[in-house]
Design a binder for these strands. Structure first.
Lengths: 183, 183
DNA sequence: TGTAATAAACAGACCGTTTGGTATGGTGGA
DNA sequence: TCCACCATACCAAACGGTCTGTTTATTACA
């Protein structure tokens, strides 16, 4: 406990759950069992630098996770189905969803910096890219693949929000069904 | 300036833009040009009571707004197209989207109360209901109408997030195209 | 109608706490 | 000895919230 990567890991989960302004530095250092000095040693520019590091880490983790699933299944239909099912399974056991989503951070964009916005934008772009590639390898044109990829990204992000507010996994189940009809 | 409904109106916009924890009471009272005493006169239980009042107000405003559009057009296809176009137009002129979305509040759910969660859930349910009714009056079964309605709600909510992070209205344009193919 | 009594509406200083952030002092290994 | 590493103590500012006092409507009664 206490390495830089562990700090990022824990802080990421907190940011995803409560949003940037919803988490204080004290909460973070308590969760990581480190001192404030240690935090500012690793992230001299403070909270926002930590957030951006978290977004960078999320980029790797999410990308790896999704690509792993997408490599396992030949078509987007099967891959997408498996991915959402995994999401639902996690939600039903843990009661919350953190992976694959960072809407909590995006939605506070108005009070955050341009650097954060760009980091978030990169993350979405990367996810869309994975979907789009698979769609194109399934035979779709680049244009329609992109459109569907964006829609999938948006629907899943929104679906997670619906699951969290309703405390049910039903929304994501419905969305999965409907999205699969698109391909 | 200073009536209860005006306070709610202004606070709602601030909450939507910056999230619950992203807005301080001081910012609210400055924007409304009221004193802290006045705020606590209208909302004795403080910030959270104000938030719930805002969500109630949003419920009315959004419902009215969407229903107005949906009454104008005979089919869901035309209505949905018009609705998203209106959303895009607002985004392109104002540079931000507040109407129809409250993801900023939902995504901080982890640090908010159960009462807030229920208020948000009611709002989503109402929006879905409007979509679903129109889909059923277009001839779809109740079950598939509900699924598509949920997907539309999620995709639009997520699409707004994408537009905000990318500073483009492209995502919503793409999503509009794709969603309309579902019906 | 005039006036006293009462309640609602509001203002703003103030409270304790927490915020993000800094400055300083030590400690262990090279 | 040196320097990365980190703990402690501390800071000003901002936070949400409370308090007391004052103004403004409203009502009651003569």
């Amino acid at each position: 406990m206490g390495t830089k990567s562990q700090i990022i890991e824990i802080a990421t989960a907190l940011f995803q759950e409560k949003g940037y302004n919803g988490v204080g530095l004290n909460e973070i250092i308590n969760a990581c069992k480190i001192s404030k000095g240690a935090l500012y040693h690793h992230f001299p520019n403070g909270k926002e630098e930590l957030l951006i590091a978290c977004l960078g880490s999320l980029n790797e983790v999410i990308t790896k996770d999704i690509e792993e699933i997408f490599d396992q299944y030949p078509t987007i239909k099967e891959a997408m189905k498996a991915m959402i099912e995994k999401l639902i399974a996690k939600f039903e056991t843990e009661g919350t969803i953190t992976s694959y989503t960072f809407s909590s951070i995006v939605s506070e964009m108005g009070s955050l910096s341009e650097a954060v916005r760009i980091a978030c934008s990169n993350l979405y772009t990367k996810i869309e890219g994975i979907y789009s590639n698979k769609l194109q390898s399934d035979g779709l044109s680049e244009e329609s693949a992109n459109s569907i990829a964006v829609t999938m990204t948006a629907a899943i992000e929104g679906g997670i929000l619906l699951c969290l507010t309703n405390k049910t996994s039903e929304p994501l189940k419905m969305i999965s069904q409907v999205l699969l009809r698109l391909v």
